[in-house]
Simulated scan of single mutants.
Amino acid sequence: MDEIIVTINGSQLRGSEGMTILEVAQENGIDIPTLCYKTELKPIGACRICVVEVEGSRTLVGSCHTPIAQGMVIHTHSPKVLETRKTIVELLLASHPDSCIICDKGNMCELRKIAADMEVALPPFKVRKRYYPIEDTSPYIVRDLSKCILCRRCVRSCSEIAEKNVFAVAYRGFKSKVVVDFDEPIDKEVCRDCDVCTRFCPTGALSKPREVGEEKKGEALFISG
């Protein structure tokens, strides 16, 4: 493959044709936060947390799905980038349930970790929240769509890895959500115990049923403010 030279944060770095900005950055120890991205899945740029500034581009671009080009000059932590990421995280937190303390994934939630790493305070504004009843009739999965951030990891992992296509995204705008079949509760007939979607979910939207007395995993994460 042809070698491509790009400049990231003032340093000239080398990559290969077909590599994305995120891949080159990670290969060289440059941290770019992500929520919807996983190396095992095809990138879709849904969360926009990984945006970077590319000189000559009118808008910020998603680093997870933007391929590098010869001579590209990239800024991963410019004021514009940091402010945009902060706003995105604040919006996600504002629309998220206030249940981190009792959430089974509270100490391992990737949204909470990114907020803590970026020192994002509790959002200064209020947005309309989506509330859904917790689905716990399946012996394999507990689903709380109120905590879903629409990263589509469950949809993609179920399709690309488990090859089952149990999940899909339905509706539009504020009503958008991940559904099973024709928006039916998840049950043991459509989903078996492969554990793929629960492992890929970055929040507490999907989890395995917890045994009585079982402790939450991970160290406590704190959000400032």
Rank of each mutant, 00 (worst) to 15 (best):
F200G: 01
V180A: 09
E219S: 12
I8D: 12
S95H: 04
E90V: 00
K86G: 10
K105N: 03
S176E: 05
P43A: 02
S57I: 13
G204I: 03
E119V: 01
P202G: 00
I141G: 06
I223R: 10
G218H: 06
V179L: 08
I88K: 03
R143M: 04
D136A: 12
P97E: 03
A121W: 12
S207E: 10
C191Q: 00
T66K: 08
K129V: 06
I161R: 11
A121T: 05
V73M: 05
G62K: 10
E119H: 12
K38W: 14
R128E: 12
L91F: 03
R85S: 10
V127W: 10
K129W: 06
V166G: 01
C201W: 00
E119R: 09
V142N: 02
G218W: 09
A121I: 01
V212Y: 13
P123E: 04
L92T: 05
C103H: 04
A121E: 14
G29Q: 05
R199I: 14
R192E: 14
G10N: 01
D195K: 09
M1C: 14
C50Q: 08
S78L: 09
S63G: 07
G173E: 00
E110H: 04
D31E: 15
T39F: 13
T87C: 14
G10Q: 00
R192H: 14
S99P: 08
R210I: 15
I21F: 04
D136Y: 04
E23T: 12
Q26E: 15
G71C: 01
F125T: 07
C158H: 01
S176H: 13
I102D: 13
E189L: 14
S176R: 03
L93F: 10
S207C: 06
V180C: 07
F167L: 05
V81G: 00
